[in-house]
Simulated assay, not measured.
Amino acid sequence: METKLIKTGKFIDGKEVLAIELTNSQGTYVKIYNYGAIINKFIVVNKHGEKQDIVLGFDDIDQYTSEAYLSNYSYLGAIIGRYANRIKNGRFNIDGETYQLSQAKGGDCLHGGDIGFDKKVWDVLSTIDPSVTLQYVSPAGEEHFPGNLTVQLTFKLTDENELILDFKATTDAPTAINLTHHSYFNLAPQGGSIAGHIHRMPASNYLEQDDNYVVTGKLIPVEGTKYDFLGDKAIGQDWDIEEGYDQTFVLDKPYGEFTLASETSEAESGLKLSVYTTEPVAHFYTAKYLDVKNGKDGQDYLPYGAFCVETQHHPNGINVPKFPSTVLRPGENYKQTTIYKIEHN
């Protein structure tokens, strides 16, 4: 088990982009960039004894900042912050003060604004085998959010084939925060559509969205709908092929409890990915808008060629008082743990 720090020679805003490599005794290898806290590679051994990369990404760090990729940006493998998903009209109120954020297509704020945490070079605080802790200090007013926010994210790879993501944050003024990670997974050896992956989520309700995918505040039971993943089901079994899934599921658990968020398996590789989290919801996205040219090994990534399980607090929760609070205040500590665990079926 070890951690390696590798210089890429690339600098962004005067800070060097570094690659951090984590390996364990099971042959699992994870490569992370301090740019965007991107999980670039997640290589595991499948049931055939073959090494297989289960996340989408690029072979070259420069591709993550290319004009072609950013013009149809998909947040491949990156952290999302200060605020995951959408905030209605890019606006929220804390203690009587209204804050207007940048607005994306449709007029809502998406994934933290124009230049979110996914486009920042994070400081490498420590590397303890096999883990790395990254830090980013977001200044007050960045993307129009209040408060100086200090965020730390630790990635740790265990010999049980768990990649643990521990998030921590503090602030010097009340602010909105909702962090997640946006890895795109495909468990099939040759990639392609994830329609045949078998998926399960212990979530009896999902969150209603408006026409621009913004959460309204209403919970809808999954029973009798295409959103029912309470039992094992092929992802493509009930979906609308023109839409796939892009919904937030409310996990069946007490608030703050660390439990299973989802299980996804694929027959040919024999791999199963289980996601565990302390967070109350998981956003399940089947990559409808994915259109990336020249990914790893020259692959083109197309719609429904991956799935994301984005553990977080309720999207737009800053504007829905009945949802768990996404306000962080001075003296408080934001904490979140999410684990990606790989097993054989």
Results as ranks from 00 to 15, higher is better:
Lys4Pro: 04
Lys4Gln: 14
Thr8Met: 03
Phe11Thr: 13
Asp13Ile: 10
Lys15Leu: 02
Lys15Gln: 11
Lys15Cys: 01
Leu18Cys: 14
Leu18Asn: 12
Thr23Ile: 13
Ser25Val: 10
Thr28Ile: 11
Tyr29Trp: 14
Ile32Gln: 12
Tyr33Val: 02
Tyr35Asn: 08
Gly36Asn: 11
Ile38His: 09
Asn40Thr: 15
Ile43Lys: 14
Val45His: 07
Lys47Trp: 10
Val55Gln: 11
Val55Asn: 14
Gly57Asp: 14
Gly57Leu: 08
Gly57Trp: 11
Gln63Gly: 14
Tyr64Met: 07
Thr65Glu: 11
Glu67Gln: 06
Glu67Asp: 07
Tyr69His: 09
Tyr69Lys: 00
Asn72Cys: 02
Tyr75Met: 06
Gly77Phe: 08
Ala78His: 15
Ala78Glu: 15
Ala78Pro: 13
Ala84Trp: 04
Ala84Ser: 09
Ile87Glu: 00
Ile87Thr: 05
Ile87Asn: 02
Gly96Ser: 09
Glu97Pro: 03
Leu101Asn: 10
Leu101Arg: 03
Ser102Arg: 14
Gln103Gly: 09
Ala104Gly: 15
Gly106Tyr: 04
Cys109Ile: 12
Leu110Val: 14
Ile115Cys: 15
Gly116Glu: 06
Phe117Ala: 09
Asp118Trp: 07
Lys120Leu: 05
Lys120Glu: 10
Asp123Ser: 02
Ile128Arg: 14
Ser131Tyr: 02
Val132Gly: 11
Gln135His: 01
Gln135Trp: 03
Ala140Cys: 09
Glu142Arg: 06
Glu143Phe: 14
Glu143Val: 08
Phe145Gly: 03
Thr150Ser: 05
Asp159Pro: 06
Glu160Tyr: 12
Leu163Glu: 03
Ile164His: 00
Ile164Gln: 06
Lys168Phe: 00
Thr170Ser: 07
Asp172Glu: 10
Pro174Thr: 10
Pro174Ala: 15
Ile177Gln: 12
His181Leu: 12
His182Phe: 08
Ser183Asp: 12
Tyr184Val: 13
Phe185His: 11
Asn186Val: 13
Ala188Val: 08
Ile194Leu: 08
Ile194Lys: 08
Pro202Val: 00
Ala203Met: 06
Ser204Val: 09
Asn205Asp: 03
Asp210Ile: 13
Asn212His: 12
Tyr213Met: 05
Gly217Glu: 01
Gly224Pro: 11
Asp228Ile: 08
Asp232Gln: 13
Ile235Tyr: 01
Gly236Tyr: 05
Trp239His: 05
Glu242Tyr: 10
Glu243Gly: 05
Tyr245Pro: 01
Thr248Leu: 07
Phe249Cys: 10
Leu251Thr: 07
Leu251Glu: 01
Asp252Cys: 11
Asp252Pro: 10
Lys253Tyr: 07
Pro254Asn: 12
Phe258Pro: 05
Ser262Ala: 14
Ser262Tyr: 06
Glu263Gln: 14
Glu266Gln: 13
Glu266Arg: 09
Ala267Gly: 03
Glu268Ser: 08
Gly270Phe: 07
Glu279Tyr: 03
Pro280Asn: 04
His283Tyr: 11
His283Gly: 02
Tyr285Lys: 13
Tyr285Gln: 10
Tyr285Arg: 13
Thr286Met: 14
Val292His: 02
Gly298Arg: 00
Leu302Ile: 10
Thr311Phe: 01
Thr311Gly: 06
His313Ser: 04
His313Met: 08
His314Thr: 11
His314Met: 04
Phe323Ile: 01
Phe323Glu: 05
Ser325Trp: 00
Pro330Val: 02
Pro330Tyr: 02
Gly331Asp: 04
Gly331Ile: 00
Glu332Trp: 06
Asn333Lys: 12
Lys335Tyr: 13
Tyr340Leu: 15
